[in-house]
Design a protein around this nucleic acid. Structure first.
Length: 524
RNA sequence: GGCGGCGUAGCCAAGAGGCAAGGCAGGGGUCUGCAAAACCCCGACUCCCCGGUUCGAAUCCGGGCGCCGCCUCCA
C-alpha cells in the first residue's frame, strides 16, 4: 500500500505529519481512514453579518492545512458549512423586514468575494443548514428511536446522560458543567445540559414541517447532518476556532456517534486560537470591535495579510495591530525582492551550475516539511523561506558584482521558493500596479514631457505598466545626460504613487511599495 | 467556583533538558551620482519572579505575580 499518492510518496521521505488533536490533547500521526484521501470539514460562518479578520485567520489556516495535505500527495475532500438558520439571522431578518435567505445570499456573495481575494481555495462543498433539513429530521428521528433524544411540546432535546463520553472533547464532566451553568435550566428538560435538536416555530419565524410540528433545527445538528451527507460517518479532520469546542463540537460528537454508532466521529479535531482586536481582548461581531476582512483587504494586500496570519502558530492567540500587519507586509517585500533579484541575476548570468544554491533549496525544503509536519508550524516554515531568500540574495549579489555565477542554482532556488510559498497560499506576484493609478501616471508623464519632450515619448494609449516603462526609459536617458534633478523628480513622484524605483547597473527596476495603508484613502 | 492557555530582545514570534530560529524596527560598513535593494558586521550575558531536580533548565517540578479563553451565541 501507499504506492500511489500516499503521504510524501513523491518526496522519498518517510516523514510523518502529526497534528494536535483537541480530543486527546496530544500530537498524533495523521492517518486518514482511507489511504490517500483526507476528509476535511471546517466550521463555517454564521451568515448574520460580514466576516472579520479572525474568521480569515481560521479559514486561511485551514486553507494551508488543505494545501499541505495536497502537497503531501493526499486527495482532499474539503467541506465548509454556512449557517443560514440561527437566532441572530432570524432576529435580523425580522428587524429589517427581509427573509433569512435574502440575508444569507448577501453574505455568501460577500464571503466568496473576500475569500477569493485572500487566496483561499474554495471548498468542494458549501452546504447550508436550510439545504439539509430532511437529513436533520432523519437524524433526530434516529436519535429518538435509540433513546438519545426526546420530544417535548414540539421541541426535541438531546439526552446528554445517554452519552457517556459527553464532555470529553472540552474536558469537563456533566457535574462540572452544571456547577458553572450561568443560565436558568428549562424545567422541561430532563437534564439541564440537554440541548435542542429541534425548536418549535415561534410566530413569524421561518419554519419547516416535521414529525414534531413546524419548527427549525438547533445549531449543532446541521454539522452532524452535513458531515454524514458529504463525508460519511467518520471524518479525518474537523476544524474550527477554539470557541466552538464547547458546546458546538461537543454536541456534534454526541449526536453523530449516537446516531451512526461509528466511533470516532472525527479522527483529529483541530482548533485554532482566537484573534484579538487592536484594542481589548475579544474580537466578536456582536461586540462591534472587529476589523472586517473587507477593511483589511482595503488596507493590505492578500499576501501580507496571510504572512501576518501565518507568522504565529495557529494555537497561539495573535493580535491584529497597525504595527504587526505592516511589519509583515515589509517582510513579504523581502521575499518578493529576492525573486526579483534572482531574475535579474539570471538574466546576466551565463554559467549553468551552482551547487551551493541548489543544495540550499533542498535543505530548505526539508526544513519546511519538518516544520509543517510538526502540527503545521507555519512560523518555522516561513523562517525557512526567509533563509532561502537570503541564500538567493547572496548568490544574486555575487553575480551582480561579478564575483560569482549561478544560473542553475538560482533557477532551482526560485522555483523552490515559489512552490513552498504557494503551499502557504502566498502568491508572490512579480509586480503589478493598481490600474486606477493610470490617470496619475499619465499626468506624471505629461509633466515630464513638459520638462524634456525628447526623452519621454507620449504613451497616450499605454497601460499603467507601459507608462511606467516609458517614464523609466526616459529617466534612464536623463541620468545618462546627468540630468539628475529631472531623474530624481520622476523617481520621487513615482514613489508618491506607491511605485518604488531601483536603479541597477543594467537599468532601472520598479515594484509596488509594500501596501501598508490604503492608497485610495484620505491618509494617502 | 471548575476546565484550559499564555508571559522569550524596542515590536511580532519560533524553540520545550545541552551553544536563544525567523521577520520588523535600529546602529555601523560595502555598493551607488543620490536613493532603493542587496550583502557584511552589531543586539536577549538570558527567556515574568522565587525555590527545587539535574553535570546541565527558557525548557521538568513546586510556589508566587500578571494576563487571557471556555463553562451562554461566537472562527
Amino acid at each position: 500500500m501507499g504506492t500511489d499518492g500516499g503521504a510524501g510518496s513523491d518526496r522519498g521521505e518517510a516523514a510523518i505529519l502529526t497534528t494536535h488533536n483537541t480530543f486527546t490533547k496530544r500530537k498524533e500521526p495523521f492517518a486518514p481512514l482511507e489511504e490517500g484521501t483526507a476528509r476535511l470539514y471546517v466550521c463555517g460562518p454564521n451568515l448574520y453579518g460580514p466576516v472579520h479578520v479572525g474568521h480569515a485567520f481560521s479559514y486561511a489556516f485551514f486553507d494551508v492545512v488543505r494545501r499541505y495535505l495536497e502537497y503531501r500527495g493526499y486527495r482532499v475532500i474539503h467541506v465548509q458549512n454556512f449557517t443560514d438558520i440561527e437566532d441572530r439571522i432570524i432576529e435580523r431578518a425580522g428587524r429589517e423586514g427581509r427573509t433569512i435567505f435574502d440575508i444569507a445570499r448577501e453574505y455568501i456573495d460577500r464571503f466568496f468575494q473576500e475569500m477569493d481575494a485572500l487566496g483561499i481555495r474554495r471548498a468542494h462543498h458549501y452546504p447550508r443548514a436550510s439545504e439539509v433539513i430532511p437529513q436533520i429530521i432523519e437524524i433526530i428521528q434516529g436519535l429518538i428511536a435509540r433513546g438519545h433524544a426526546y420530544a417535548v411540546d414540539g421541541d426535541v432535546y438531546y439526552r446528554v446522560t445517554s452519552f457517556p463520553r459527553y464532555g470529553h472533547l472540552s474536558g469537563r464532566s456533566l457535574e462540572e458543567m452544571q456547577a458553572g451553568a450561568r443560565v436558568e435550566p428549562d424545567p422541561r428538560k430532563e437534564h439541564p445540559m440537554d440541548f435542542a435538536l429541534w425548536k418549535t416555530a415561534k410566530p413569524g419565524e421561518p419554519s419547516w414541517p416535521s414529525p414534531w410540528g413546524p419548527g427549525r433545527p438547533g445549531w449543532h445538528i446541521e454539522c452532524s447532518a452535513m458531515n454524514l451527507q458529504y463525508l460519511g460517518p467518520q471524518t479525518d479532520i474537523h476544524g474550527g476556532g477554539e470557541d466552538v469546542i464547547f458546546p458546538h463540537h461537543e454536541n456534534e460528537i454526541a449526536q453523530s456517534e449516537a446516531f451512526t454508532g461509528r466511533v470516532p466521529f472525527v479522527r483529529s479535531w483541530i482548533h485554532n486560537a482566537l484573534m484579538k482586536p487592536p484594542v481589548g481582548e475579544e474580537m466578536h461581531r456582536h461586540l462591534g470591535n472587529f476589523v472586517s476582512l473587507r477593511e483589511a483587504l482595503a488596507q493590505y494586500d492578500a499576501d501580507s495579510i496571510r504572512l501576518f496570519l501565518l507568522g504565529t502558530h495557529y494555537r497561539t492567540p495573535l493580535r491584529w495591530t497597525d504595527e504587526a500587519v505592516p511589519a509583515a507586509a515589509r517582510g513579504l517585500d523581502r521575499l518578493r525582492t529576492a525573486l526579483a533579484n534572482a531574475e535579474d541575476a539570471i538574466a546576466r548570468s551565463s554559467d549553468q551550475a551552482d551547487g551551493s544554491l541548489t543544495e540550499a533549496a533542498v535543505r530548505v525544503r526539508q526544513v519546511f516539511e519538518k516544520a509543517m509536519d510538526d502540527d503545521f508550524n507555519t512560523p518555522q516554515a516561513l523562517a525557512a523561506l526567509f533563509t532561502l531568500a537570503g541564500e538567493i540574495n547572496k548568490v544574486a549579489d555575487a553575480v551582480v558584482k561579478g564575483t560569482g555565477e549561478g544560473r542553475a542554482g538560482l533557477w532551482a532556488a526560485t522555483d523552490t521558493l515559489r512552490e513552498l510559498a504557494r503551499v502557504l497560499g502566498l502568491s508572490l506576484p512579480r509586480t503589478g500596479v493598481d490600474a486606477t493609478l493610470r490617470p496619475d501616471l499619465r499626468a506624471l508623464l505629461v509633466e515630464a514631457r513638459q520638462q524634456a519632450q525628447d526623452l519621454f515619448p507620449d504613451a497616450a494609449d499605454g497601460s499603467a505598466e507601459e507608462i511606467i516603462q516609458t517614464l523609466l526609459a526616459g529617466r534612464q536617458q536623463a541620468r545618462a545626460r546627468r540630468a539628475y534633478a529631472l531623474a530624481d523628480r520622476v523617481r520621487a513622484r513615482l514613489g508618491e504613487l506607491g511605485i518604488i524605483v531601483e536603479d541597477l547597473p543594467n537599468g532601472a527596476r520598479w515594484r509596488p511599495a509594500p501596501r501598508t495603508t490604503d492608497l485610495r484613502g484620505s491618509s494617502g
